[in-house]
Design a protein around this nucleic acid. Structure first.
Length: 922
RNA sequence: GGGCCCAUAGCUCAGUGGUAGAGUGCCUCCUUUGCAAGGAGGAUGCCCAGGGUUCGAAUCCCUGUGGGUCCA
């Protein structure tokens, strides 16, 4: 079967007298100590046999089991490592959430680029797997949030020497399996019941042999031996259809599900009861759920069969549920009615833990990234809580988990939950009003609500189709939700991805040595000497490579330095500086000459401004955190000469009062004139000392990283900084704006730029004061008075126009007689309002009104006709307007129009009586 | 990061290029004093901002601002 078969023949199995067998139900190969065993141990081959029949000596709580595991592996020579955040994007930029313990060490450690924090090590890593969301609560074993207990060993082949950050073999397959057996034994398990299923592992471009470890029907561990990488010419063809070849590094990657182990030790019907006993009791009581002994027994029997349920593997939960009911000999509706509320309770408990992890780790709800995932989980949880009829506020439920997980920012977590709940409630209110109107509409016409409307409601307004159905039914409208609703939504989003820009790489660059970066040695220096190693001619200008440089290349949100390079004969301007690999390219307007000796001179003023802004960015980030809370993270930054901007994660708009507070805190740091220090510590040391908040501005590569200290604020940063905070001069927030949901942009200026910005604002105020002829401080009050007065005058003018119109109408202009109806044809150079008012006044008197105006540079007509007169005002206007080169129209009793030819207005009005005659009774 | 939707009276929203509306709330008066009472009258507005198209824009187009929502 598997080409990896040889990989599974371990000496350890040999020594221990294991048998290799093939399961008649699932077809997989597995190893067991039990000569009589036939099946592999995994559902559907075997049911859960640990329920009400715990598999270990004692029952363990989650905390006890975690400690048991970690201390066991500590005793076996592993170093215990603190868990990483669940927001994996805090140390790597290729994934959003931590889904396994190995994520902590990808990609830099697994590739051998940086050493692991310890080797071998053990850890219990909180993880979130969103893909399990539909299974949660229903299968009895799936949780979205879980802790993966693990031990890892990082090995490198002896023959590759010290090419990698670790070398030699710590241990490999035999010891890994032995450790697993011994851990089982330490808990008092019957190791003859354990089966090791051969299950090659593939993921993320790597692969290797692996065992699934089964005990009494439960998969308790996965032992992965990561040893291959994807390679088209590789000798191993694996289940994902790709070829793989061996790597120089090989890594023991184990995963022991803490929740599963706890569950098996307790033998409760579901994993949830073992993990969340308090919360489940609370929810049951709150929702008023009680079971008779008989019902309780049924729940336990159903639980043993629930290993067969997995939304991913069975298409239809209802059918699977019916099968279970059949086997238990009960009515399936009865069973569903009994289990459904429990499933909701389980899901709520799990989701609340997920939310506690997310918000505890500083994720802020948003329309993008991890924030969006958090929002989805929160809304789903809210719906479950409401459906179940639990009246406890969601922030309290999440807080129960946050407290258990020992998060320090519980107030912020509750704040975020409340704020997000408020937003969701508003969305629902808006949504249901919308649906009600729509439903009334379609109910009246007797049509069903079309699918298009459903998609629109969901996609643009966030209203779930089942909510539409619910409201529609109340209103007597019908809805048909297609089975493939969500794929219809997906179709709507389908589009071609933006083409990826392929960067051109100049081959000659690869041969050049890394440029020596002088800008870190002395950030105050602005002159240096260097040798021109090479010059590349570009479409516009030249790229000059030096052996060393003071010029800072664009990076980390800091723009490039400008300046000059001079030989004895000539000076070239440097207008841009970029980093290609390790080589710094200076974009110049002329060729300084390869091999020349040059003097570099920075544009000092520009560099100083950039340095002030860069240090100010750290200071203001710290100030924002101080004012708004620890959840504040940098979501992007850009430094400039005149202004800089810092994007931070935050769940509400920043108020004016908060901005002032931020300015005060930031400038206090400036005034305290704190020294700004840099250091280059080892990456692991830095991480363990300061945590992942170091990586506010992105994740740098390499074994050593550069840290910038500004007082208590520490960040990994490659930019140039002033020596002391006092050198910043001043920090002024210019503006805050939402850049996306959950991310606020703070625009600010530092040093002279801050002064200039303040002066600009003051100038605007002074000018406004000049215009209003008042002191600057009186501008707001005066502006308000003027605005109010202006509005009142508008109303007065309207009233006067109406009065004027009545007077004009009563003044009795020349009237003609059209078929017994008096008509007034008059030129009156007013605006459209005046013409309308006058026409209305004439119509009130029973007269036909034809008014023309040349005001505003164009000819305009208004025609009014009293009730019961056989003249179509629209036609009259149409004909008149045509004569002035325009058009017009309106209802039969009142129309307006016009055209550009003002010159002929009088002539056209002269012809108006003829037009009226023509149109009469037409 | 991308898509879509929205912005009109204090609030909720109608308004398909031709005189800015409804419900609710508000003010005044009347009738009643049984809980979201009834009747009459009145005031509501830079129709988000700026440009464009047009004789004419709340309405169509572009840009911006603010809000919402879905997806990766």
């Amino acid at each position: 079967m598997s080409e990896l078969e040889e990989e599974y023949r371990l000496e350890y199995f040999e020594e221990e007298g294991f048998y290799r067998k093939q399961c008649p139900v699932t077809g997989v190969h597995f190893w067991t100590r039990d000569p009589d065993r036939e099946t592999c141990g995994e559902p559907p081959a075997d049911d859960y046999t640990f329920i009400d029949n715990p598999g270990f000596d004692e029952e363990y709580t989650l905390e006890e089991m975690r400690e048991k595991f970690l201390s066991f592996f500590e005793e076996q020579g592993h170093e215990r490592i603190d868990p990483y955040p669940v927001a994996a994007n805090r140390w790597r930029d290729d994934v959003l959430l931590t889904q396994a313990s190995i994520y902590d060490f990808q990609p830099l450690v697994t590739s051998g680029e940086t050493p692991p924090p310890a080797n071998p090590l053990t850890i219990s890593q909180p993880c979130i797997r969103m893909q399990d969301i539909d299974n949660v609560g229903k299968t009895g074993r799936h949780t979205m949030a879980f802790e993966m207990m693990a031990h890892h060993a990082f090995n490198a082949r002896e023959e590759v020497g010290d090419e990698y950050a670790y070398s030699g073999e710590v241990y490999w397959k035999d010891d890994t399996v032995r450790l697993c057996d011994e851990f089982f034994e330490s808990l008092g398990a019957d190791i003859s019941e354990i089966t090791y299923i051969e299950d090659p592992w593939v993921g993320g471009g790597n692969a290797g042999p692996a065992f699934e470890v089964l005990y009494r029907g439960a998969e308790l561990a996965t032992l992965v031996f990561m040893s291959m990488k994807q390679d088209p010419d590789g000798e191993y063809h694996l289940k994902d259809g790709n070829n793989y070849s061996p790597m120089d590094t090989y890594i023991v990657d184990t995963g022991y599900g803490l929740e599963r182990w706890t569950w098996v030790s307790q033998g409760t019907p579901t994993v949830y009861e073992a993990v969340y006993p308090d919360m489940i009791d609370f929810l049951k009581e709150n929702a008023g759920i009680e079971h008779s002994d008989e019902e309780e027994a049924l729940i336990h029997r159903a639980a043993m069969l629930s290993g067969h349920l997995d939304i991913d593997e069975i298409d239809d939960l209802a059918t699977a549920r019916a099968d279970v009911a059949g086997e238990l000999d009960v009515d399936k509706d009865e069973l569903t009615a009994l289990l459904r509320p429990l499933e909701d309770i389980y899901a709520i408990a799990d989701h609340c833990r997920t939310l506690a992890y997310m918000f505890g780790d500083g994720i802020v709800p948003s329309n993008v990234g991890t924030g969006y995932l958090a929002r989805m989980v929160l809304r789903r949880t809210k719906r479950l809580v409401d459906n179940l009829g639990v009246d406890a506020p969601l922030d309290e439920l999440v807080d129960m988990q946050a407290e258990r997980l020992d998060y320090q920012n519980r107030d912020t977590i509750r704040d975020i939950v409340r704020s997000e709940e408020r937003k969701y409630r508003k969305t629902l209110e808006r949504g249901s009003r919308r649906v009600q109107q729509l439903a009334d509409d379609y109910a009246e016409r007797g049509d069903p609500i079309p699918v298009d409307e459903l998609i629109e409601l969901y996609d643009s307004h966030g209203i779930q189709p089942d909510m539409v159905q619910e409201i529609a039914e109340e209103r007597g409208a019908t809805v048909d939700i297609p089975d493939d609703f969500y794929s219809l939504v997906a179709d709507r989003h389908e589009q071609v991805d933006a083409e990826t820009v392929t960067a051109e790489q100049d081959d000659r660059l690869g041969d050049l040595p890394a440029t020596d970066k002088l800008y870190y040695d002395d950030q105050e220096r602005t002159e240096f000497e260097a040798v021109v190693l090479d010059v590349f001619e570009r479409e516009e200008g030249y790229d000059v490579v030096l052996d060393q440089t003071m010029f800072y290349p664009e990076g980390g949100g800091q723009p490039a330095d400008h300046g000059t390079l001079s030989t004895d004969d000539a000076t070239v301007e440097v207008s841009d500086v970029q980093m290609e690999g390790d080589v710094v390219l200076h974009r110049t307007d002329d060729d300084p000459g390869k091999g020349e000796f040059v003097r570099g001179q920075l544009d000092v003023e520009r560099r100083r401004r950039l340095m002030r802004h860069h240090t100010a960015t750290h200071v203001i980030g710290h100030a924002i955190r101080t004012v708004l809370g620890d959840h504040i993270r940098q979501a992007g930054a850009s430094k400039g000469v005149d202004r800089s901007r810092l994007d931070v994660s935050h769940y509400e708009r920043i108020t004016r009062e908060e901005v002032k507070q931020i300015e005060r805190v930031a400038n206090e740091i400036v005034m305290r004139n704190i020294p700004v220090k840099q250091e280059w510590p080892d990456r692991n040391d830095a991480e363990s000392k300061y945590g992942f908040d170091l990586y506010q501005g992105g994740i740098p590569p390499g074994e050593k990283i550069r840290l910038i200290h500004v007082g208590s604020d520490v960040q990994a940063c490659g930019g140039t900084h002033v020596k002391r905070t006092g050198d910043i001069g001043a920090i002024k927030v210019l503006n805050t704006e939402p850049v996306q949901d959950g991310v606020e942009r703070v625009v600010f200026a530092a040093g002279d730029a801050a002064i200039e910005a303040t002066q600009r604002t003051e100038d605007a105020l002074y000018e406004a004061g000049d215009v209003l002829d008042v002191n600057p401080e009186d501008v707001p009050e005066t502006a308000e008075r003027f605005f109010t007065e202006w509005k009142e005058r508008g109303k007065t003018i309207d009233r006067l126009k109406t009065e004027l119109a009545e007077v004009r109408a009563a003044a009795g202009a020349d009237e003609i007689d059209i078929d017994g109806t008096p008509a007034v044809i008059q030129r009156l150079d007013g605006d459209a309002d005046e013409l309308r008012a006058t026409a209305n006044a004439l119509v009130e008197e029973g007269k036909v009104a034809v008014l023309g105006s040349a005001a505003g540079g164009s000819a305009q007509f208004v025609v009014g006709v009293p009730d019961g007169v056989g003249i179509n005002a629209g036609q009259v206007v149409g004909q008149l307007a045509q004569k002035v080169g325009g058009g017009g129209g309106g209802p039969a009793d009142f129309a307006q129009g016009g055209g550009p030819n003002v010159d002929v207005l009088d002539d056209v009005l002269d012809e108006a009586s003829d037009v009226l005659e023509n149109v009469l009774n037409a």
